[in-house]
Design a protein around this nucleic acid. Structure first.
Lengths: 224, 224
DNA sequence: ACGCGTCTCCCCCAAAAGTCGGAGTTGCGC
DNA sequence: GCGCAACTCCGACTTTTGGGGGAGACGCGT
């Protein structure tokens, strides 16, 4: 039996989802919550298998609640984020917060039920448009390497090293130390890099490095 | 009416999928193919809306076929990759090849039908385990959101705007123009941002913006 | 031997960036 | 009204950056 917690600030919406899920023989709605704080309490008390979490709520929004519940109650609880609106602004935060699902509220009832079962089984369920975006992003990690790769190939090996160092947030002096060369040499290389890539300054070089895949998000600590 | 092409080297499997899909009133199986080359011919001839493509086939495997079909016939044709085995080794190549879906063959019939409709509508459908893996990869396998999120929240709204502009490769003067404020003000904000985030210069700010998700790879052109 | 590209380094110079301290304005909450 | 935070600006200062030359050394291919 899958034990589910439904969280939404609108009682009607809450009841609707609870009703749909409750009709399934293998699903039981163990609690409902009207805001983020209630959600955390309920999660703590009932330790549900799956939480349906609205994103826009008073007190504490769904994303913050998600993060706290996963941190506190444990990640054997799966959370599906629900939203009415365009997910663009929230989706990234939701995924980072640890959500297992992200669906629009206009999802067909059967699909919602399927989503609950899917995430309970350890899978993840995203709205198709979001999935497509994730794929594009994933494929883009290497897909665009070809495009910008051309520009990258105009650089010499040493220049690429310097560019990497720039993308690491290093100053010219730090780069000099790291590569065992003089500061003047670094400046030469930096100038070549900027000129060859058509960039203006090292900040743009950092952007370029990320966009072309030379630098990858998550591949470093931002400790500085 | 959705026009579908089914590609699999095993005739029985092929017929099975065709049968399931053909029973739907809004889906028509316009052709079947037994290997990659046949698939390309059939795709060229029928220009189907959706192709169900087995991954293991003689002559030309499903991934190579996918890439060629998308390049040749055009990307208004959506392709779903089917596999019996653990998708780990193929998924990466499949997504890069441009597939809109990737599902295991033991998918329930209704789910397969839903997948066809989903990708035809421009969405994407992945096996839940794959979706989870994509999310994990995207999120960097780490709950880093909180770390950087906290640091981001120390910034005022205006400072975040400035940081975004920095991450866009803009100079102080360009930022001033973009935000309709004086250059001196920009410098103030930049100083605040750097100091609050513990960064040294704008290049590190760009790195930070990418790492914390404020700036997104692929969300811009590196035209400068 | 010669040219070529790369790596190394130098000087000078101008522009941009960043720091420091100060200061006026608004708006918001107590 | 008062404190406070945020947004806005200023001026002067130091540091960093980037450009424009140039130059020596090395290796590589013709």
């Amino acid at each position: 039996m899958l034990r589910v917690l439904v969280v939404d600030d609108q009682a009607l919406v809450r009841r609707g989802f609870a009703m749909v899920l409750g009709n399934e023989s293998d699903i039981e709605v163990v609690a409902e919550a009207g805001d983020g704080l209630e959600a955390i309490d309920a999660a703590r008390a009932h330790k549900p298998d799956v939480i349906l979490m609205d994103i826009r709520m008073p007190e504490l929004d769904g994303l913050e609640s998600t993060a706290r519940i996963l941190a506190e109650v444990g990640d054997e609880t799966r959370i599906i984020i629900l939203t009415t609106f365009d997910p663009d602004e929230y989706i990234y935060r939701a995924l980072r917060a640890g959500a297992s699902g992200f669906v629009l509220k206009d999802i067909p009832p059967e699909a919602l039920v399927a989503a609950v079962r899917t995430v309970a089984a350890g899978g993840a369920m995203l709205d198709p448009t979001i999935t497509r975006r994730l794929i594009a992003r994933f494929a883009g990690d290497l897909g665009t390497e070809q495009d910008y790769g051309e520009r990258l190939e105009r650089l010499t090996a040493r220049e690429r090293e310097v560019l990497e160092a720039i993308a690491d947030g290093k100053s010219n002096l730090e780069i000099a130390d790291a590569l065992f060369i003089g500061p003047a040499t670094v400046k030469s290389h930096v100038s070549s890099v900027l000129s060859k890539l058509g960039l203006r300054d090292r900040a743009q070089a950092v952007v370029f490095a990320y966009e072309c895949g030379l630098a990858k998000v998550g591949a470093r600590d931002v400790g500085f």
